[in-house]
Design a protein around this nucleic acid. Structure first.
Lengths: 208, 208
DNA sequence: ATGGCTATCGTTAGATG
DNA sequence: TCATCTAACGATAGCCA
C-alpha cells in the first residue's frame, strides 16, 4: 500500500535533484481512527471533515437521486445539518419508516394490504390521507414527549437516561420492524469498526 | 495483498501479443455530479457510496468525538442509518436544538447548506412524490412484516435479538472492547426502556 | 474559524469473475 | 447480485498566511 512502484509513480522531482531538500509539505500523513488528542487539531479536523462529509452526502443525493440527511454536532455543541430534499422531511420520513404501522396510533380500519392493481388512484388517495394523519399524530406525540421531558427536575441524576430513552422509546414502538432496522444499523457500525474483516487475511489484530 | 504486481506481470502476455497495450482497467473515471441515468450503475454507485459515507461519518465521530447521524433512503426506498452514539439520540438532540427557536418543523436558521426551496409547485410535487414513496415503502414493509411473522415465532423480544447480536458481533470482533461496551450499553438501554414501557408509558404491540 | 498549499492517503468508476 | 481488481480521482494532515 505504502510503496509506490514503477507503474505510475515516475515522478521523483525534488528528491532526486538534491540530497538535502526540505519539502514544502509532508503531504497527508496517515492517522489512526481514534480520538485526536490535541484540541486545535481536533477542531481543524472537524471543520474540514464536516465539509467533506456534507459534500459526499450531497454527491450521493444527486448522483443517485435519493433522500438523505446528515446531522452533526460540533465539538462546541453547535448543530450542523445537511438534507435533501430537506432535513425535516427526511427526519419525518425516517421516523415514519420506523414506526411503520401497527402499534403506532389508532390504525384506520381501511388500512390494510391492498391488491396493487385495484383502482390505484382511490387507493393512493386513501393511503395518503392515512399517512398524513399519521404524520400529524407523530408530530403531536413528539411534542408531548418533549414537553413531558422539559419540566423534569434537572437535579435528577437520571436525567440523561430519561433523555436518551426518549427517542429510543419512540422508535421502540415500531416493534419488529424497528429491531430489524436497528440491527442493520448496528451491523453497519460494527463492520465499520471492524474494518476489513471480510477481505480474508488481515493482520490478526485487525483494527488500525 | 502484495502480490498485486506479480499477478499483474503474469497477465502481461495478453498485451504482448498485440501491438496495442490494453490496460487491465481504466481506473476511476471522472464523472459529473448529476443524476446517473443508467439504472444499474446508479444502484451500484449508491451501494458503494453509502458505505463510503457511513465510513466517513464514523471516522468523524471518532476522530473528533462528536455526535452525528446519517439517514439515507436507497433508490429502492429502503432506509439506512448510522449514528453515534445512536440515531435516535442524535435525532432527538437535533430536534431539541431546533425547537428552541421555532415550533415544530420550520427550517432551522443555522442551515448553511440546504437545497433551495423552489416555488410552491415544486414543493407540492416533492411532497407528492415523497408521499407516494412512503406509501410504496409502507406497503412493502407491511408485507415483509407479515410474511416474516407468520411462519416464525411471533414473540421475538427486543432483548433477545439485541442479546444475540451483541454476543455474535462481539465474538466476531474479538478485540474491540469499546464496541462491546457500546453494545452492552445499548442493550441495557433497550432493557431499561422495555421496563419503562412495561410500567405503562407506551404499551403498544406486546413487544415482549 | 477559513482558506491555500503539497504530498500522500483513501475512495471509487469501470471492468471482471 | 456482490466481491474483487486497477488506476485515476478526490480528500486531507500538516503547515502556514
Amino acid at each position: 500500500m505504502e510503496e509506490i512502484n514503477a507503474s505510475a509513480a515516475t515522478k521523483i522531482p525534488v528528491a532526486s535533484r538534491s540530497h538535502v531538500i526540505k519539502k514544502k509539505s509532508m503531504g497527508r500523513q496517515k492517522i489512526a481512527i481514534e480520538r485526536i488528542q490535541r484540541e486545535d487539531a481536533r477542531q481543524v479536523c472537524f471543520s474540514k471533515r464536516r465539509v467533506g462529509l456534507f459534500k459526499k452526502a450531497h454527491e450521493l443525493s444527486v448522483l443517485c437521486g435519493v433522500h438523505l440527511a446528515v446531522l452533526v454536532f460540533s465539538p462546541a455543541k453547535k448543530p450542523f445539518s445537511f438534507g435533501h430534499p430537506s432535513v425535516p422531511q427526511v427526519i419525518e420520513r425516517f421516523l415514519a419508516s420506523q414506526s411503520s404501522n401497527k402499534s403506532d396510533l389508532p390504525l384506520p380500519p381501511h388500512h390494510r394490504i391492498m391488491p396493487p392493481s385495484h383502482d390505484a388512484n382511490a387507493a393512493l388517495n386513501r393511503e395518503m390521507a392515512d399517512l398524513k394523519a399519521r404524520i400529524e399524530a407523530s408530530r403531536k406525540r413528539k411534542q408531548m414527549l418533549e414537553s413531558a421531558l422539559r419540566p423534569k427536575n434537572p437535579s435528577i441524576s437520571n436525567a440523561d437516561v430519561a433523555d436518551l430513552g426518549l427517542a429510543d422509546l419512540c422508535m421502540l414502538k415500531g416493534g419488529l420492524d424497528r429491531v430489524c432496522t436497528d440491527l442493520e444499523a448496528y451491523k453497519e457500525r460494527l463492520m465499520l469498526e471492524a474494518g476489513i474483516m471480510h477481505t480474508g487475511m488481515v493482520s490478526s489484530t485487525g483494527l488500525q
